[in-house]
Design a protein around this nucleic acid. Structure first.
Length: 104
DNA sequence: CGACTGACTCGAT
DNA sequence: TATCGAGCCAGTC
């Protein structure tokens, strides 16, 4: 059973990601109140009832790697203006969102 | 209750 | 950034 507060925190953090920016599961988990709950964040996003209402496609792993098999995520990211590398990795140097500071 | 799994992370190479 | 190995957390079998 996942803590409702944590789930809500994940939703808030993910929903707060601006267009054309990405966040890592670890960051989302930290914002949600769980520094080591990255995997839980992933599970929550996978099971999230909001589905497309939540920009979960803006959440990637620490290496900017997208979910295997989830082609829709790449399409959505490209639609947001995020360019993926040939191997399917996002340029975290450019698109990683610093939730504490507005990026130029 | 123990073992396996996963939309993960970190440190080292 | 890529790859390897070890660690962490909750769910499922």
């Amino acid at each position: 059973m996942l803590d409702s507060d944590f789930i809500e925190g994940v939703y808030v953090a993910v929903a707060a990601i601006p267009k054309g920016r990405v966040l890592t599961y670890g960051d989302v988990a930290r914002l949600a109140g769980g520094p080591n709950y990255a995997r839980m964040a992933g599970r929550i996003l996978h099971e999230n009832p909001l589905g497309r209402s939540l920009p979960c496609h803006r959440v990637v792993n620490s290496l900017g790697r997208l979910c295997p098999g989830w082609t829709e995520q790449a399409v959505l990211l490209k639609n947001e203006g995020v360019v993926l590398k040939a191997n399917g990795c996002v340029d975290l140097k450019r698109y990683h969102w610093n939730y504490n500071e507005a990026q130029p």
